[in-house]
C-alpha cells in the first residue's frame, strides 16, 4: 500500500527533515510514527499525500509512484487518502453536516449520494444528533470526530493522522483511538504521528521511530520507547 525507498527531504536552510528513509506498509496495517519534536514525522506524512515532494528516493502510494505523478493526478490520489490533524481544519461557518458534505461536494459527488454517505458516516462517529451544530459549539473530541468523518466519508484506502489527539485530554483521546481502530479494522491503512505514550503503549501496534530524520526503529507490536 505504501513503500518508501531511501527517501530524503531537505528543506531550504539545509534542514534535513528525512534522511534515506525506507519502509513498507501493508494494506490494513496500523502504524504509529513516534520521535521527538522536529524529527520528521509530519514531513513523513506530508510526503505520502504529496503535499511535499521528496528530493531523492522513491515513494509508492496505492500503486502510484509519487515522483512521476503529474500534478493534475494529485487530486485523484488524494481521494484515496483521508487526512486528520491536531487542529481539525474544520470550516467554522459550516455546520457539522456541511463540513462533511463539503468534502464530497468538491469532488463532484451527486447530492443523493452525499446525503446517504454523510448520514451513514455521522452515525458511525456518533454525531447524528449534532449535525446542525457549528464547530464552535462542539467539544474538541467532537470536532475531531467531525474531521474524521470528513476524512473517511469517501472510504479512502489510507488514513493519515498527524497528532490527532494532540489537543485532547486522555479520556477523549481514548474515544478517538477507538474510532480510528474501528476504521482500521474495516480495512483502511492508518498512519498516525503521535507524542502520546499512553496510546502507543496500550494499542501495541507497529511503531516507526524517527530521530533527526532517520528511522531508528521499526517494530511490529512496539511501544513508545
Amino acid at each position: 500500500m505504501i513503500r518508501l525507498e531511501s527517501v530524503s527531504k531537505v528543506f531550504k536552510g539545509d534542514v534535513t527533515a528525512l534522511r534515506e528513509a525506507s519502509a513498507e506498509i501493508q494494506r490494513g496495517e496500523f502504524v504509529f510514527l513516534v520521535g521527538p519534536s522536529g524529527s520528521g514525522k509530519s514531513t513523513f506524512i506530508r510526503l505520502l499525500n504529496r503535499e511535499e515532494v521528496a528530493d531523492s528516493g522513491r515513494i509508492m502510494v496505492a500503486g502510484k509512484d509519487l515522483g512521476s505523478l503529474s500534478s493534475w493526478r494529485v487530486p485523484y490520489l488524494r481521494r484515496n487518502i483521508g487526512c486528520i490533524f491536531q487542529d481539525y481544519k474544520l470550516l467554522s461557518k459550516k455546520t457539522v453536516w456541511e463540513n462533511v458534505a463539503f468534502g464530497l461536494e468538491v469532488i463532484g459527488r451527486p447530492r443523493p449520494v452525499i446525503k446517504r454517505q454523510v448520514t451513514a458516516i455521522l452515525e458511525l462517529v456518533g454525531l447524528s444528533r449534532k449535525a446542525d451544530r457549528i464547530p464552535d459549539e462542539l467539544s474538541g473530541g467532537e470536532q475531531q470526530r467531525v474531521s474524521i468523518a470528513r476524512a473517511f466519508v469517501n472510504r479512502p484506502l489510507i488514513l493519515l493522522a498527524d497528532e490527532p489527539t494532540g489537543n485532547l485530554d486522555p479520556t477523549t483521546s481514548v474515544g478517538i483511538m477507538r474510532l480510528l481502530d474501528r476504521i482500521n479494522r474495516s480495512g483502511t491503512t492508518v498512519v498516525m504521528a503521535t507524542h502520546d505514550r499512553g496510546i502507543v503503549d496500550t494499542m501495541r501496534r507497529r511503531v516507526i521511530e524517527l530521530d533527526r530524520g532517520v528511522i531508528v526503529r521499526d517494530e511490529s507490536r512496539g511501544v513508545y520507547d
Partner: peptide, 11 residues
C-alpha cells in the same frame, strides 16, 4: 480543505 480532499485544480 478542498485540496486536501482531492478537489481538482479546475474545480
Amino acid at each position: 480543505v478542498m485540496k486536501l480532499v482531492g478537489a481538482t485544480n479546475w474545480f
